[in-house]
Nucleic acid binder design. Structure first.
Length: 113
DNA sequence: GCAGTGACGTCTT
DNA sequence: GAAGACGCCACTG
């Protein structure tokens, strides 16, 4: 059979890749979209493995508070904030300003609402 | 196989 | 309102 564990990671990568520029989302939102109840931690773990996938804009994924929790895991921590600012976002003390305004939810993709 | 840890989130004190 | 503890699942040692 297949490597089911990779399946989980791949799903998370797909969602993160769909994040548009200037937008950010939270681990819980991705977990909810994938149906992971407490997957928030799992999502974060997958992001750690995302280092193998350079196509994963992990800098657009922050915690529920809009804080760059994983900035320290980047090749260069400051690069995460730099990229977010380059996309038109404002970072204040490792925290995204107007996070609610720039918040992007993957659930609205299929939800034609 | 057990114990510890982790890019989080929610509940309780 | 803030801080601490727990839960949940996956990976490493």
């Amino acid at each position: 059979m297949e490597k089911s564990k990779e399946n989980h990671f791949d799903l998370i990568y797909q969602v993160v890749r769909l994040i548009p520029e200037g937008k950010v989302t939270s681990y819980g939102a991705i977990a909810s979209y994938l149906g992971l109840k407490s997957g928030a931690r799992m999502v974060g773990y997958a992001m750690n493995a995302s280092h193998t996938q350079m196509d994963i804009p992990a800098h657009r994924v922050v915690n529920r508070n809009g804080v760059l929790t994983g900035k320290h895991h980047f090749s260069q921590p400051e690069e995460m904030q730099q990229k977010l600012e380059a996309e038109g976002l404002q970072i204040e003390k490792d925290q995204i300003k107007d996070f609610n305004t720039h918040f992007w939810d993957p659930n609205e993709l299929e939800l034609d609402h």
